[in-house]
Design a protein around this nucleic acid. Structure first.
Length: 596
RNA sequence: UGGGCUAUGGUGUAAUGGUAGCACAAGACAUUUUGGUCGUCUUAGUCCUGGUUCGAACCCGGGUAGCCCAACCA
């Protein structure tokens, strides 16, 4: 008996799937076992929408002491490739999950075949020799019932012979299919004699030339779940219409295995069951594999891991942390309502996580030179910068142990061009004639009241250099540093101790909130497809590259994918192509700065 | 004139017959060696309509709106 004490009042309520799982466990369904599966088709890269499914499938298993298998849904060899399997595995691991077993739908091909033969001999399946067009017409419409195939009542032995022939390679694809004999008048379109097997005559990347006929999704998924021992088969809402068929095929398979009520078997509670939740929709984001493929092929983006892509590899390179992604998914929850989530909520969740782990560094992205006139030429001071001020001890003091790095101060500095205004007005709290500011971790500096004494301009009137004087008693950490001033604290870099960096800034790829619908409508209205229907909604400024930025040497030497914060600017990440000689940074997301 | 699912502030999500709460967004204030973080406050909601009930976001009826289903894809 467990006692409930110290329950946290802010404990998040369970989502409806977790409630269901808890109840099933309590009721002892499936012998009190919990097993899930994550079933990607290895025909493309995982995206953020998959992350939501992964968080559910692996998350619920982890939470309730069950196991989640990774199952490659590889029933269509013409679309799938081994290339994607490794990428999928990597992405799941990056998100922090472990699978029980790695399995493949193709592992079950033989058993599925034997089961199909049994269905034929039971009179529950038949080989149809009509064309796909004929079959489509006979299927009827959602409002009109379908009609039976002329092959529907052919002898079982004949169907069995033809079915076996379907796998010899001698049958042309499209000539024959195996259909389940269910109900051509069913209001559920999936019950109108669904296709179980089709001829492809293609080798499979795992089973080689063994099969020429391959099972369809509907004839594979539930049965694979059953054979594997899955108890909760959790998927997205668009599979709701498949639910009944899933149950029917599982029931048939149990019958084939001799698990019937007549044999004293539990056919109600001891079986896999399907549960559906809403998939992730994000505004200003396009998620469909087909469209993402077009973006890569048309070179709108630089590959699947372009930081603008919603792929897992894309957001990883962008600098999103797995914890941040999971944080976001936790916030949006799981329901049965088709929501359109605000990308700002995702960014807030990412910021929340990155704030805890990003190393603070100084980067000047639009530099202008600042000379401290009264600082000795050639003098260099080593100053201490805190890596992460959120790292605190029990008393709330910032932990400095192992949480600092050294920065150099000298006479010539880089500061942001926008941190100086010749006539910024009262509300401009940065540098300008007569204004005083603090340089982060260093000194208080001041510009002369006389603009001509603190600003150097070129012939066109552009500011090329700013002059100021420093207060030697105001060094950070010294007693004089406590002096309060009106101005803000600016970040800066010593010219002699900083390196040039490439900074890549990203904005949404799309200019409209719901690109999927916009593209669909544009296709319809203008009779164009693919990239031509996408271009009107593409943001031409989704990527801007700045090669004139400066960064601390310390930051230039950090490993790829290190989480950084460019102070007063945003969160950035070290690109995998970055080198100490040519550092490259990707902007993850800006700081939550108020509009100034 | 098919079947299924759904409807809570601008967005997302809680509340399972008993005080409509939280987060994001927007706006304001305070603090600050990041105009960040942390803190305080403001704005704003149960699709419509009947019914059951002492009492309905919740249960029931009738509307309305949206999504999914007619691939030899998954």
């Amino acid at each position: 008996m467990t006692t409930i004490e110290n329950t946290t009042p802010e404990k998040k309520s369970l989502n409806f799937i977790e409630v269901k799982v808890e109840n099933d466990l309590v009721e002892g369904k499936n012998g009190g076992r919990l097993q899930t599966r994550f079933p990607p088709e290895p025909n493309g890269y995982l995206h953020i929408g998959h992350a939501k499914a992964i968080a559910m499938d692996f998350g619920v298993a982890k939470k309730y002491g069950g196991v989640c298998n990774l199952r490659m849904d590889d029933t269509n060899p013409q679309k799938e490739d081994t290339e994607y399997v490794e990428a999928i595995k990597k992405d799941i691991q990056w998100l922090g999950f472990e699978w029980g077993k790695l399995v493949y739908a193709s592992d079950y091909f033989q058993e599925l075949w034997d089961f199909a033969e049994w269905c034929i001999m039971q009179g529950r399946a038949y080989v149809d020799e009509q064309t796909s067009e004929e079959i489509a017409i006979q299927k009827g419409t959602p409002t009109e019932p379908g009609t039976n195939s002329p092959y529907r009542d052919r002898p079982a032995e004949e169907s069995l012979r033809l079915f076996r022939e379907m796998n010899t390679g001698n049958i042309e694809p499209g000539k024959m299919i195996l259909r389940a004999k269910i109900d051509m008048a069913s209001p559920n379109m999936h019950f109108r004699d669904p296709i179980m097997y089709r001829v492809l005559n293609l080798p499979h990347w795992r089973t080689g030339n063994k099969w020429n006929a391959y099972p369809m999704y509907d004839f594979t998924h539930g049965q694979s779940d059953y054979l594997e021992g899955v108890t909760h088969s959790i998927c997205t809402l668009e599979f709701v219409p498949h639910h009944e068929l899933y149950d029917l095929f599982v029931t048939w398979m149990k019958e084939w295995k001799g698990e019937t009520a007549e044999n004293g078997q539990d056919i109600e509670d001891n079986r896999p069951r399907q549960f559906e939740f809403n998939k992730l929709n994000l505004n200003y984001t396009l998620m469909s594999k087909r469209n993402l493929l077009i973006l890569t092929k048309e070179k709108v983006v630089n590959g699947w891991d372009d930081p603008r892509m919603p792929t897992i590899c894309g957001i990883r390179r962008r600098g999103y942390s797995p914890e941040g992604v999971l944080n976001f998914i936790d916030k949006i929850g799981y329901t049965t309502f088709d929501a359109l989530n605000d990308i700002k909520l995702m960014e807030a969740a990412i910021r929340e996580d990155l704030n805890k782990r990003a190393i603070r560094v100084s980067a000047v992205v639009n530099p202008v030179k600042l000379i401290i006139d009264n600082y000795p030429e050639g003098q260099i001071e080593e100053l201490v910068a805190i890596n992460n001020p959120e790292l605190k001890d029990a008393e709330g003091n910032i932990i400095t142990e192992g949480n600092t790095h050294v920065i150099e101060f000298s006479r010539e500095l880089w500061i942001e061009r926008e941190d100086f205004m010749e006539d910024g007005g009262k509300k401009f709290l940065r540098l300008g004639p007569g204004k005083e500011v603090r340089l982060k971790n260093a000194y208080i500096i001041k510009c002369d009241e006389d603009a001509s004494k603190c600003i150097e301009k070129d012939a066109d009137g552009n500011i090329i250099c700013i002059h100021a004087t420093f207060d030697a008693d105001s060094k950070s950490g010294m007693p004089g540093a406590d002096r309060k001033i009106k101005g803000k604290t600016l970040h800066w870099l010593s010219c002699a101790h900083s390196v040039k960096a490439e900074v890549r800034n990203y904005a949404c790829l799309w200019t409209c909130e719901n690109p999927r619908d916009a593209i669909k409508q544009y296709e319809k209205e203008n009779g164009v497809r693919g990239i031509d229907a996408m271009r009107p909604f593409l943001n031409p400024d989704s990527l801007t590259i700045n090669t004139e930025a400066y960064i601390e040497k310390y930051a230039a030497e950090l490993d790829a994918l290190t989480y950084l914060q460019f102070q007063r600017n945003g969160y950035y990440n070290v690109d995998p192509d970055s080198t100490p000689e040519h550092p490259v940074f990707n902007k993850t997301v800006s700081l939550n700065a108020p509009k100034f």
